[in-house]
Amino acid sequence: MTDITKPATAVNIEAKLALFAEQWAPHRIAGINDYDVKIAKVQGEFVWHTHEATDELFLVVSGLLTIQLRDGDVVLGPGEIYVVPKGVEHCPRAEEETAILMLEPAGTVNTGSAGGPRTREPVPLD
């Protein structure tokens, strides 16, 4: 939600990424309507999961991200986006530390249908 009592300021993604080191932990940097704009640092392989009710947008800020899909992988570099359609099983993976931005409805669980120890609530940085 936008707080109209705060002065208007731009969000610097690089500055927000510098505030944390933990990987695979989403951080909320903004909201738009009923959506969260989240960033994360990732390395290694996540978990295979689906989001039955929503699409999920990934934008690579730095590094390389592979979105593994059952019918073929999508490799993203800086400035590239991919939208995983709702209900499609996927597993993000990064060989080196990669910074990503995600756009999805507020309340979307990062591990989708899989749950487990990597499930995290987004940490607000907005």
Rank of each mutant, 00 (worst) to 15 (best):
P105K: 05
T108Y: 03
A30Y: 08
A30C: 10
A10W: 02
T66E: 14
S113I: 12
P7R: 10
A114S: 12
E14H: 12
V11S: 08
P117Y: 05
D34N: 14
G72Y: 07
T66Y: 07
A106T: 13
V75G: 02
L101P: 00
G31E: 15
A114Y: 05
P124E: 12
L17T: 02
T108G: 00
K38R: 14
E96Q: 14
H27C: 14
E121D: 13
E22F: 08
E56I: 06
I13M: 09
N12M: 04
D71T: 10
A8G: 02
P122T: 09
A21C: 06
D36C: 07
V88T: 13
E121V: 13
V88W: 01
S62I: 05
L19P: 00
E104G: 00
S62N: 13
D126T: 02
E97K: 09
G107P: 03
L64K: 05
E89S: 12
Y82H: 15
L103F: 15
Y82N: 08
P105M: 07
V74R: 06
E97R: 09
G87Q: 12
D126G: 11
V37T: 08
G116M: 06
K41H: 15
T108N: 01
L65Y: 00
I4P: 04
V83G: 01
V109K: 08
E14K: 11
Q43C: 08
G63L: 03
I39K: 01
D73K: 04
F20L: 10
N12A: 09
R118N: 13
V75P: 00
A40K: 02
D71R: 10
T50C: 06
L59T: 08
V60F: 09
M102V: 11
T2C: 03
T50G: 04
E121R: 06
Q68C: 12
L76Y: 09
T98H: 05
I67T: 01
K16C: 05
A40Q: 10
R70K: 14
L57Y: 00
V42F: 03
E97W: 07
G87H: 12
V42L: 14
V74E: 08
Y35H: 12
Q23E: 15
L64H: 02
E95D: 15
N33P: 04
E95R: 05
Q23N: 09
P78E: 15
L17A: 11
T111V: 14
I100G: 03
Q68S: 01
G72P: 04
T5M: 04
G31R: 11
Y35F: 15
T2K: 07
E121C: 06
D73Y: 06
V88N: 01
V74T: 05
D55K: 05
A10G: 01
L103Y: 05
A106C: 08
A99V: 03
T2F: 13
T98D: 00
I81G: 02
A21P: 01
A99M: 13
L64G: 00
N33H: 12
G31F: 09
A99S: 13
V60A: 09
V74D: 04
A30I: 10
V75I: 14
K16Y: 03
A10N: 04
Y35T: 01
L69T: 03
